[in-house]
């Protein structure tokens, strides 16, 4: 690790403050999560009882845990389609379609990312409210029937509604990343493609998409990771409801730890959660082509 002629001791000395911070705030709690996942505990600081892998066994038969996991997956897949898909379309339009006011459009579309997710949750909660929200009125103008309890009050629609709000916030962000990727493609490449008889949608497929492959992979992974750790949006918009229709892993872990007094179980689920996150990390590492 240390090249010849360097002093390992002084290197360690320089790294020490960072190691303390990392150890104290990342590795120590991480280890604690692993340990606590093997115990049953009802109050923070309260008595712990060692139960081995019983917490992990419990997950297998916990219907809500599996629903939360499936919800995360739906969240991920739909978010990829909406955020990365729409982001790509918008970026392509701004890159080659729109000539005027490009910066204005880009700024407007990007804007939602700077608002805190909690505020966006509250805002869209009002927008989608069946009684006072304007969405119901607008939809009725087009003759689109809306559920009586609102989209977020309908078990079959609440998750999709939540995912849509998430996409509303993040699509602009994805667009900006993708657009930056697209704009780094030299114009000469498109000219060469035109000479080769390739333009428009064919140039998008043959030149643009392969050129920003790594950017797309990064965006997809960011979206998936975002979808798996989503908490604030769900908490504010639906709080996991109606029933458990929009429960996701993070919200379910939170609920177990702080509402159901299942601290050991919440830790065990966190371990599984970490495992999933690691898998995506490895996938990302593998898919980025040097």
């Amino acid at each position: 690790m240390f090249s010849k002629g360097r002093e390992p001791v002084s290197a360690l000395l320089l790294l020490f403050p960072m190691l303390v911070l990392l150890g104290g705030f990342i590795f120590l709690p991480l280890g604690q999560v692993f340990v606590w996942s093997l115990f049953q505990q009802e109050v923070f600081g309260g008595p712990q009882r060692f139960i081995g892998l019983a917490n992990f066994a419990e997950m297998g038969s916990d219907r809500v845990f599996w629903q939360a996991l499936v919800n995360n997956m739906i969240f991920a897949v739909l978010s990829i389609v909406l955020q990365v898909g729409m982001g790509l379309v918008l970026a392509a339009l701004l890159d080659h379609g729109v000539r005027r006011f490009r910066v204005v459009y880009r700024t407007i579309i990007f804007a939602p990312i700077v608002v805190s997710t909690a505020a966006i949750g509250l805002l869209w909660g009002l927008m989608l409210d069946p009684n006072i929200g304007p969405i119901t009125d607008w939809m009725s103008l087009f003759g689109v029937p809306m559920p009586r309890n609102g989209i977020l009050g309908e078990p079959d629609l609440a998750l999709v509604g939540t995912i849509f709000v998430g996409a509303w916030q993040y699509t602009g962000f994805m667009m900006v990343i993708l657009l930056a990727g697209m704009q780094s493609i030299p114009e000469e490449l498109y000219e060469a493609a035109r000479m080769d008889g390739c333009k428009g949608i064919r140039a998008f497929i043959n030149i643009t998409l392969p050129s920003i492959r790594n950017v797309i992979v990064t965006c997809v992974l960011l979206t998936v990771i975002g979808a798996f750790k989503v908490f604030d949006l769900v908490y504010v918009l639906t709080n996991g409801g109606p029933g458990t229709a929009t429960e996701v892993l993070a919200s379910y872990i939170f609920r177990n730890a702080f509402e159901f007094s299942n601290i050991g179980y919440a830790n065990a689920m966190s371990v599984v959660f970490l495992g999933i996150a690691l898998i995506f990390g490895v996938i990302q590492h593998r898919m980025i082509r040097k």
Binding site: P186, E188, E191, A193, P210, S211, R213
Partner: peptide, 9 residues
């Protein structure tokens, strides 16, 4: 082209 403009992928 001046900068070759080869398709890198």
């Amino acid at each position: 082209f001046q900068n070759y403009a080869l398709y890198p992928h």
